[in-house]
């Protein structure tokens, strides 16, 4: 087999992993049982595994930096890599359910770290089911940005409960996001775009960003340009539907 040779999965010219060795099924059922390790609680997330240069030992240091950005369903990691240089001081993590895709992103980050010493130390990826286990990774109010880019549309109405944005999951995202934290969603499926927007709009803990705020936010531009899915849509001349909302505290 090819994979047994001297790492043919890495491109000879760039040293980056080649996607064709990490093909995976496009969809995965988020409701089925998981058989991979999950941290019991956020304090058991081992930062030294994810960010070895920034956290040389696995001992917990009080007041140490915590992960602030989460790319849920990060796919092949395009957004993480763009964000890494845009926010070099921020720790961020990609969460992906598909094993092979996670492996690819892992290899990609490692290769980038080797090729660019000192850079890309603030990004990592974890294989997990974020719909079930997101509170196991982040404490209350820990995150400042969450990304849901081109999520699985789950077309059938029967399967809508598998969608990563729903009224009830937004309760959990609102728990993980600090007040003022921003949730970014984008899709090329019009119906899903409407669904996500309607869920966010009707949720008592989220408010839409104004047009000016959207234009001023450098991250919004990355939603379409940085991700593999976004580039594919652009190639095919498709349309995208985005919804960007802020976690706020309603006066009670």
């Amino acid at each position: 087999m090819l994979e047994n040779n001297a790492n043919p999965t890495l491109s000879k010219s760039t040293g980056l992993p080649r996607k064709r060795f990490y093909r995976a099924r496009a969809h995965s059922n988020p409701l089925s049982d998981s058989h991979f390790p999950i941290p019991i609680s956020p304090c058991q997330v081992d930062y030294s595994l994810h960010y070895p240069q920034l956290f040389p030992s696995s001992d917990k240091i009080d007041g140490a930096k915590k992960i602030q950005f989460a790319d849920v369903g990060c796919g092949f990691g395009g957004l993480l890599i763009s964000l890494s240089t845009l926010f070099p001081e921020t720790l961020m993590i990609g969460m992906e359910l598909r094993d092979k895709v996670t492996e690819y992103v892992k290899e990609r980050i490692l290769a980038l770290r080797v090729a660019n010493p000192g850079q890309y130390q603030n990004i990592s990826v974890v294989r997990t089911n974020s719909m079930k286990y997101i509170p196991n990774y982040f404490e209350k109010g820990q995150l400042s940005k969450m990304f849901f880019l081109f999520p699985d549309p789950h077309f059938k109405e029967k399967n809508h409960r598998r969608r990563v944005i729903s009224t009830h999951l937004l309760d959990e995202y609102a728990y993980c996001l600090g007040v003022g934290g921003i949730i970014y969603t984008i899709t090329d499926v019009e119906e899903l775009g409407e669904w996500m927007k309607a869920c966010l709009e009707s949720h008592p803990l989220f408010e839409a960003l104004t047009k000016e705020e959207l234009e001023a936010d450098p991250v919004v531009k990355l939603l379409t340009s940085a991700t593999e899915e976004g580039q594919k849509v652009a190639r095919n001349g498709g349309q995208t539907f985005q919804a960007v909302y802020r976690r706020f505290m309603p006066s009670q």
Partner: peptide
């Protein structure tokens, strides 16, 4: 929300945006 399947087991997801006439999520563009 409309229930597209007559089988009561196949009831639609309960959470989500308001009801409207069922429209396939996919379009000619997707």
């Amino acid at each position: 929300k409309p229930t597209p399947a007559p089988d009561p087991e196949d009831v639609a997801a309960e959470d989500g945006p308001p009801a409207k006439r069922y429209k396939p999520s996919a379009s000619e563009l997707t």
